[in-house]
Design a protein around this nucleic acid. Structure first.
Ligand code: ZN
Ligand code: ZN
Ligand code: ZN
Ligand code: ZN
Lengths: 133, 133
DNA sequence: TTGCGATATGTTATATTGTAACATAATACT
DNA sequence: AGTATTATGTTACAATATAACATATCGCAA
């Protein structure tokens, strides 16, 4: 395992941290290009793949975007709640729920390997006071 | 509610039924173009959106593809198991699991509206006998 | 019936997202 | 050093998705 790309990984992590919202690959690319004009999509995708692989960031399939892990890093699947109003994402862990899910899907002999769980809705601040007239 | 597009909807349903595997929007487009040369992406996406909306098909976010509902149609979220080997998809329903999921994400005041649950792995036939040497 | 607003559909163009393929550079090991 | 292996850079392109506007259809009322 080489470590040449690690600086770039940290930069990307920082971009996601600063935004604190889902960021698309091309948004990341745009940020990086502010200092590295020649940055290419391929490079960004590779960094994002590496970070996703080791659990430091998560990809939101239903948004085609990325957030950094709110628990620093982990392998196990997490549950991502996406506010469709403000865009904020919350991350929950619930091992028992994952187990149950594997059990449900396993009824037909299916062997679960990767769970994608994304919940759309409204976060606490957006759901309660939608501002009167 | 007009009914002009319904013929097209049926055609699309039929395409998905025949394939019995996840089909991308552009695959659908390709099929349709066999008889309707001028078919446009926009049209296909609109049909797919309509069918998704009424629960007759489901979109696999993690595959950017569509399958038709194995239960005919429904509104409630379903659990989609995707075999990464043969591509086959199975659909499970588990209202209690959805409830539990809403409960987990609701701890912070989040109000769930739409559940995306996709499980990747190996189906029964692909998982057991991966063919010997 | 005709006129008009609302909605659905057709059409063109373009935006966004994601990868293939190959060149080059770093690393590890002999 | 020499060479196989892997990572990274670079170019080009493929695949996915939507914006914007034109046209047609429908429902309803004058
Ligand atoms: Zn996490
Ligand atoms: Zn919110
Ligand atoms: Zn279904
Ligand atoms: Zn299979």
């Amino acid at each position: 395992m080489s470590g040449r790309g690690e600086v770039l990984q940290l930069e990307v992590l920082d971009i996601l941290r600063q935004r604190n919202k889902p960021v698309s690959a091309y948004d990341v690319l745009g940020e990086l290009r502010k200092t590295k004009v020649k940055m290419a999509p391929q490079t960004v995708y590779r960094v994002l793949a590496a970070l996703t692989e080791c659990g430091k960031i998560h990809r939101l399939e239903s948004l085609k975007a990325y957030v950094n892990c709110q628990h620093g890093s982990h392998q196990h699947a997490s549950i991502l709640s996406i506010c469709d109003d403000c865009g904020r994402v919350e991350e929950s862990v619930a091992p028992d729920l994952l187990a149950k899910l594997s059990k449900v899907t396993g009824k037909t002999g299916f062997a679960a390997q990767r769970h994608v769980i994304e919940v759309h809705g409204l976060c606490a601040s957006c759901g309660t006071g939608p501002a009167p007239a």
